[in-house]
Design a binder for these strands. Structure first.
Lengths: 65, 65
DNA sequence: TAGGTATGTCAAGCAAGCTTTACATACGGA
DNA sequence: TCCGTATGTAAAGCTTGCTTGACATACCTA
């Protein structure tokens, strides 16, 4: 599952810690999602999409690694 | 997290077992999602959306129970 | 050089998603 | 009535998502 979280975060000048705080998760969770260690839960995916004002489908791409 | 899985499945005349098979999960998993016991993982949510040819956002509504 | 910020990663532990097996109930048709 | 199908639910167990705490590295700046 590819995702654009790192790219979207970078565009906004946020650190992983900044994003983690906005999403109410730990910095390690943000890092793990960005580095592809695991996929977020569906509720977290919704929070990410809402924060970036995008659809889940435009941020996460299934099928890939 | 509300969802329209039961409604979409019903429209197609599929049993929970039929849907489970198409999604490659157990019948109990389909039942648990329909009855709101827990949310699907993000990969499974993508499979559901693809099967019904809809967006994740139009099938699942966060915020509610 | 020393200190601060950002990132990567690991380990241990708890919570959530999913599995198999099993049993109960309800309904419709032969 | 009996049988097959559909659904709900429960227990035990494995895997994945997420936590806290800790440590390492890199870079930038005073």
């Amino acid at each position: 599952m590819n995702n654009k979280v790192r790219e979207l975060r970078g565009e906004r000048g946020w650190s992983q810690g900044d994003l983690a705080e906005k999403l109410d998760v730990s910095r390690q969770t943000v890092n793990a999602i960005e580095t592809g260690k695991y996929d977020p839960s569906l509720p977290l995916a919704f929070r990410i999409a809402k924060l970036f004002r995008m659809t889940i489908e435009s941020i996460f791409q299934p099928g890939k690694d």
